[in-house]
Design a protein around this nucleic acid. Structure first.
Lengths: 139, 139
DNA sequence: CTCCTTAACAATACTTATTCTTGTTATGCC
DNA sequence: GGCATAACAAGAATAAGTATTGTTAAGGAG
């Protein structure tokens, strides 16, 4: 009794939306994007399909940012930067020799490392500027 | 295991064609009528469906005229005139008390008459004129 | 023989039944 | 309180079954 996967326009639209953006969206963001074209879309369907895609490796989780899980359609290993102020998530390609780190952990501790997630948190340049402005006006 | 009847555009078109004319057409005539709109229609399909309609009482046969069977979508009892020259078939409504004839046969001979076909053969006015013209020019 | 009609059979198309997907609502959880 | 999952009926896509068609060949009447 193998479960067969069926085509649906909404599933396709959800996947296309996350694949067509680089903003590492949340379920809610995908939902709001699709509502104009799919007025009868349900938020539950977005959640279900994101889980569905993750299980099949079409999408990966970037983690929870400000209470919302964020997703990424690029599933090759790469690092992320998360701004704690505005919630922006950015890719950090080639920022760090991840393979090298994995190898280090593997050889030094004898662990079999399957995957390595490397995420930096902090303030993006934009939010840093605004923070400085606020401090200047206060002083 | 009852045979279910299915819808098909061609069957519908064939029925509409015969119902939309008063010329008592042959299979070939119906076929030629439909070819522009249904280029992939097959003559076999026309024959099959005419038989199909006759079996269900949607159509009745007027008999064979000049080698071709002719059909009629009017299934209430009425008489016909067939021109042996041009092949035209015409309805003759109320020309003759058919019910009366049936009753006569039924009562005089004890037959159970189910149906009565009354068809006249001869020359239509048009062909009669042309026949006369030809004779005049010859004499 | 020729032409009209039917038969045979594979390919196509319609319908039904199955069950996957969705919307809605309620529930869990941090 | 807000994000995420669970439950279940309603809706929709697929698969299986079989009716319909196209094609070709064969039958039959004139």
């Amino acid at each position: 009794m193998e479960r067969t996967v069926r085509y649906s326009k909404k599933r396709e639209a959800i996947l296309a939306t996350i694949q067509g953006t680089s903003c590492h969206p949340s379920a809610e963001w995908v939902y709001q994007q699709l509502r104009p074209l799919h007025p009868d879309l349900s938020l539950g369907t977005v959640y279900r399909n994101l889980t569905f895609f993750r299980e099949r490796g079409l999408v990966q989780s970037v983690g929870v940012v400000q209470g919302q899980e964020r997703f990424d359609a690029i599933t090759t290993p790469h690092s992320h930067f998360v701004c704690n102020c505005c919630g922006t998530v950015l890719d950090l390609p080639d920022i760090c020799p991840e393979g090298g780190l994995e190898r280090t952990v593997s050889t030094q501790y004898g662990f079999a490392v399957e995957r390595c997630e490397l995420t930096f948190y902090g303030l993006c340049p934009n939010c840093t500027d605004q923070q400085n402005l606020k401090e200047e006006t206060l002083s």
